[in-house]
Design a protein around this nucleic acid. Structure first.
Lengths: 196, 196
DNA sequence: GTTAGCATGTAAGGAGTTACATGATTTT
DNA sequence: AAAATCATGTAACTCCTTACATGCTAAC
């Protein structure tokens, strides 16, 4: 049942598991994380937090020490929140590998088993593969684009998705062989000196 | 004043400039074009078409020949629609190089002057550069991520954007040198005979 | 004959943005 | 002193998706 809106919820739950935080801070981290696209607004975040409060997934505490700064509302996860987070993270299925959701899941992969990780990575990969196939198929029907720019855009798009597929494959292999180190460009030997 | 919703409008206008089309067909092309992400639904397209009809940007014609298939409503651009398309395509500024809009502009670059193309490409590039800088800056403050997956996601994200910046730079160079051929893997010699 | 794909729409609802509103604190 | 940034919120609005509703045509 995880709809699109649960994206923020999952992200907030995940971030709060790394430590209590107030809204403003949360927003910055969120933007850094999923903010490759557009920025999350307060009008989006605060209502989401209120909703999570109502659902007892998080609780607010106003720090009571000698304040030098403005009263900030610090949020932390409740036990119920932890449960919910685990539940969401163990979900395998479309919701886990759709564009937006995937990044969030991946970001918090440390909180799940390798088994789940593999399933999500593989799901994501075949999702992208399907997309590639569909485009290839439809491209044959549409008769190779006459327009230069259209063709270039198409080419670049395909290339990007193919790259992503390779990235996922490397991650899958790394998971399978129980490796720690994610691929990284190429560093067979720890490279003593590389002037940027 | 171009808001987000004008994205569909621009795309439809552009596609219809390549020939009259009915809604269903339009949707397929649209999905192929901007559909790297999620699919456009009918509930989105048809109301948009109605709105454009009301604005006299397009007009519908029901083909009257001996029908073998269901009556399809074929749309084509009006003169006003052509004007609007030109206007939108010559806009330079944030709306032209935001994530969603950029692809559409690029797709129809053939319909604009090199001057506009260059400005949009450069705008897009500095937009991405800013983003990169912001992440780099904030990354320094947050103290290199402790989490493996978080770090890998960060790395991959940065790499992707850097790739995109290089792509744009190549396109800008190609525009500047009045070249026809977009970078394409490797085609050094202009190949005197191009069959197609 | 029935499934899959073509074809066009509408209504309700969700998620998030913009703009508004307010005020403290830190830096220049 | 002014400007930037920290900090929290609300209301209106927009865009889009989901689900529903309908019916034709081609293929199996």
């Amino acid at each position: 049942m995880a709809r699109r809106g649960d994206t923020i919820e999952l992200a907030v739950l995940g971030l709060l598991h790394e430590g209590p935080m107030h809204g403003y801070e949360l927003r910055k981290r969120l933007n850094l994380m999923l903010g490759w696209g557009r920025l999350l607004s307060y009008g989006s975040l605060y209502p989401a937090l209120k909703k999570m409060l109502r659902g007892n997934l998080i609780e607010e505490t106003v720090p009571s020490g000698p304040q030098t700064r403005r009263q900030r509302i610090v949020y932390q996860v409740t036990d119920l929140g932890t449960q919910e987070f685990s539940r969401l993270m163990s979900e395998v299925g479309p919701t886990a590998w759709e564009d937006d959701n995937f990044d969030i899941r991946f970001r918090f992969f440390s909180s799940t088993d390798m088994e789940i990780r593999l399933r999500v990575l593989e799901g994501r990969r075949s999702r992208l593969q399907e997309r590639l196939d569909r485009v290839q198929r439809e491209l044959m029907m549409t008769q190779a684009e006459a327009d230069r720019y259209a063709a270039e855009l198409q080419r670049h798009g395909v290339e990007s998705v193919e790259r992503e597929v390779r990235w996922l494959s490397e991650l899958i292999n790394a998971e399978r062989s129980g490796q720690q180190a994610p691929p990284g460009p190429e560093t067979p030997t720890p490279a003593p000196s590389t002037p940027s």
